[in-house]
Design a protein around this nucleic acid. Structure first.
Length: 413
RNA sequence: GUGGCCAUCGUUCAAUGGUUAGGACCGCGGUUUGUGGAGCCGCAGAUGAGGGUUCAAUUCCCUCUGGCCACC
């Protein structure tokens, strides 16, 4: 069919990197300030329109233009330098154009530090019933009302430009959750590469950075190929996608290593999407990753799980009902400075709203403080020496729980 | 006081003259990684008391105890 051929040719032309216009530089200036000598870990500074982000760092997730149960003052107090908001959710509700009319995300949610938006690619394949992915884009039905929508790279960028974050992200096709074959991973990867070029071509907002996503599943060869392609494009940062699913730590580490090896010498910031436990972050930092985001610390907080130095606690467990000590004696967050485990345990049983807020503050402060420690160790050149202590503090592989009598902080010096 | 109805996990409801009496909530644990305060997965937990019929009773019968309703 002629029209099909025309559409094919149309998208092929849009996906040709040779015809990309030049991009203005400097919208996300990344400077490496310290490089660890015994690993690929590095510390850096990412300069964005709304401020500086010291890396490595973890971004709390604020899907609906709010980090659930917290306000901007809470986020600042716990040390959040940058947060993530979701394009897919805000497009459906309240609508990107409405956010734009209210002055953009920063003004709308009253957060004056940097914001990064996801592209919506992941939500399209993970949330709503997916209808169909074509070369043009992804057709999906809303998880709110079932209405049909088409997200294309151009549409995703349009929405993100209206939302106005400091960093937008290229529209990608993540590998399907579960066991995907190399053939499926390659198909999604190649399409992600074509969509990356279209995302770049569609992006024009001055002062807004655009990051590209390297995919490739857990196949090291495909990871390297994807990273090599994405680094050839004029993005402001490089994302590592598809590595926060059900892969094993070994598979994930191999995928990170292959990606970072292919990025060797590239000056841009590296952001591993979706990873969020202390031990996972530490291992990825050692492999050269600078930025992370995840719902995990906030989500588990809402279910009563506290991350503490050396492990974790479930505050729904009855043994905490009579404990007068704070969640973590080594933590400086507002929750640990004021409240007992007994109080938190009570609030969770009573399903009081304050429970979610107090423990979210703690877990996010825990992440922020841990990243700060890692940054300091890299900057002072003591990362290797401190690694055993940091690994123990992170909870180690499998993140063991603390038993009765095992107080937080009981980690080897 | 009389008559009727009822009595099963902590709570609230099922079921049955015959393997192991089931669910929900609560309780005790676990899980959660580009957001579900959701969900999911385990575990524990009961036939009010006594007597009778029967090969076998939580089930049928009687008494007691307790509760509910109606009538005095």
């Amino acid at each position: 069919m002629g029209e099909t051929l025309n559409r094919s040719a149309h998208f092929a032309a849009l996906s040709d990197p040779a015809t990309l216009p030049a991009r203005a530089a400097g919208t996300a200036q990344f400077t490496i300030t310290a490089q660890d000598s015994k690993s690929r870990a590095r510390a850096g500074e990412l300069r964005l329109g709304h401020g500086l982000v010291q890396t490595p760092d973890f971004m709390p997730v604020g899907t609906n233009a709010t980090v659930k149960s917290l306000d901007p003052d809470d986020l600042k107090a716990l040390g959040a330098q940058i947060i993530l908001a979701n394009t897919y959710h805000l497009y459906l509700r309240p609508g990107h154009e409405r956010v734009q009319r209210f002055g953009g995300l920063h003004e709308f949610m009253q957060w004056d530090r940097p914001i990064l938006t996801d592209s919506g690619g992941f939500q399209v394949v993970s949330l709503g019933p997916l209808m169909r992915i074509t070369e043009e884009g992804a057709k999906f039905s809303s998880h709110l009302d079932g209405s049909m929508h088409l997200f294309t790279p151009e549409r995703s960028i349009e929405v993100q430009q209206a939302l106005g974050p400091d960093i937008a992200v290229a529209f990608d096709q993540p590998v399907m959750p579960g066991g995907s074959t190399d053939r499926e991973v390659r198909r999604a990867m190649d399409r992600t590469h074509r969509w990356a070029v279209r995302s770049l071509r569609a992006h024009s907002r001055p002062g807004q950075a655009l990051f590209g996503i390297a995919q490739g599943g857990i196949n090291p060869e495909l990871r390297a190929e994807s990273a090599t392609y994405i680094r050839s494009l004029p993005f402001d940062g490089i994302n590592l996608g598809g590595l926060a699913g059900d892969e094993t730590p070994e598979q994930r580490n191999a995928a990170i290593d292959a990606t970072v090896t292919a990025l060797e010498g590239d000056p841009r910031v590296r952001y591993l999407m979706g990873l969020g436990s202390p031990v996972d972050l530490l291992e990825a930092v050692l492999r050269g990753v600078d930025l992370f985001d995840s719902v995990l610390p906030a989500r588990v907080a809402r279910n009563g799980q506290a991350w503490v130095t050396g492990g974790r606690l479930n505050l729904r467990n009855s043994r905490h009902l009579d404990e007068q000590e704070p969640v973590d004696v080594l933590c400086d967050c507002s929750t640990c400075r004021r409240f007992s485990r007994a109080y938190l345990a009570h609030l969770f049983r009573a399903e009081e709203l304050l429970a979610y807020r107090l423990l979210t503050i703690h877990n996010l402060r825990h992440m922020s403080a841990f990243m700060g420690e890692v940054r300091r160790a890299i900057a002072s050149g003591t990362l290797a020496a401190e690694l055993p202590r940091l690994r123990a503090a992170a909870g180690g592989p499998g993140t063991p729980r603390l038993g009765a009598g095992d107080e937080p902080g009981a980690v080897p010096e």
